[in-house]
Simulated scan of single mutants.
Amino acid sequence: MNRVVHPIEEESYRRMRARLDTTHLPPLSRAVVERVVHSAADLGYADDLVLDEGELARAHTALHSGAPVVADVEMVAAGITRHPTVCRLRDAVAAAGLTRSAHAVRLAYEQVGPGALWVIGNAPTALEELLTLDAAPALVIGLPVGFVGAVESKAALRASGLPAVSNVSEKGGSAVASAALNALLYHPVPRSEETS
């Protein structure tokens, strides 16, 4: 995806890279780490994120091949640039032991089916609900924030064996979750993928 980068963003990345060496990371991992760190101005994410280059490569291919993107909340959806997203939170209701966020995940899954990229930056209960479904995701960006359930839901994501980007601390949120997805959106598509 061709994108014009504003000089302020270029300078911000230059300053970040002067303080954080990511050159040892493979390309997609580096892109995700740098964009997440940049979105939060928090260098600690470099040691907090858990990701796998092979999973990112498969997700990158799926994303650029048209796989749907699902966001848990409108703030995550708003942060994902130049790509349509599905967010069903407005249609969801809290009932029968489900939070609105968990119900929204069910509604979104009914809409998109398996193979989507899921971007969860707000609600641990959304991530917990996703793990109960047979969603066969291309990737789960599981970065919910908070002191109740966030760490546990991210640990459950990592234990599930699903392809994922997560972190080990309570940190997270809409901005960092959408930044992780945007890193995959902005990363160039190899020529062999463009022609296939």
Rank of each mutant, 00 (worst) to 15 (best):
V105M: 14
A104I: 09
P84D: 01
A94W: 02
A102V: 05
P137I: 07
I120Q: 09
L89A: 03
I120F: 13
A94F: 04
A136C: 04
A78V: 05
T125Y: 12
N122H: 14
L127G: 15
W118F: 07
A95W: 02
V86H: 01
D134C: 02
P84C: 01
C87Y: 03
H103M: 12
C87R: 03
L107S: 03
H103E: 15
D134G: 06
A96G: 11
D91A: 07
W118D: 05
A77S: 13
V112I: 02
L143T: 13
Q111G: 02
A136M: 04
V86I: 08
R106W: 04
R90F: 02
A108E: 05
L133C: 09
L139Y: 06
V105P: 06
A108P: 05
G142C: 12
V105C: 08
H103Q: 14
Y109V: 01
L139A: 10
A102Y: 04
G115R: 01
G97M: 11
S101A: 15
R106I: 07
E129P: 09
A94I: 06
L143F: 11
T125D: 12
T85W: 00
A116L: 05
V76Y: 10
A126W: 09
A138Q: 02
A138N: 02
T85A: 00
P84T: 00
V93Q: 07
E110I: 01
V119L: 07
L130I: 08
L127S: 13
T132N: 09
A96F: 08
A92G: 10
V105W: 03
A123G: 14
G97F: 10
P124E: 12
A77M: 06
P84N: 00
D91Y: 01
R106M: 09
A95N: 02
A78N: 10
R90H: 06
R82A: 01
P144C: 12
A116M: 05
E110Q: 10
I120A: 12
I120W: 09
L98T: 05
V86K: 00
E110C: 06
L130T: 08
T99F: 06
T85D: 00
L143Q: 11
T125E: 11
C87E: 03
V140T: 12
L98S: 07
A77R: 05
A104G: 15
R100H: 05
A95I: 04
L131V: 13
A77L: 05
L133F: 10
R88E: 07
V93S: 09
G142D: 15
T132G: 13
A92H: 07
M75Y: 12
E128L: 13
V119K: 04
R88A: 08
G113A: 00
L133M: 10
V145N: 13
E129M: 14
W118I: 04
A135I: 09
L117P: 03
D134R: 13
V119S: 06
L143A: 14
Y109L: 03
T125K: 11
A78D: 10
M75D: 13
L98P: 04
G79T: 15
A116K: 03
A135V: 10
V76M: 12
L117V: 11
R82V: 00
V119W: 04
G142H: 12
V119C: 08
T125F: 11
V145C: 13
A116E: 04
R88W: 00
F147Y: 13
G97T: 10
W118G: 08
R82G: 08
T85Y: 00
P84Q: 01
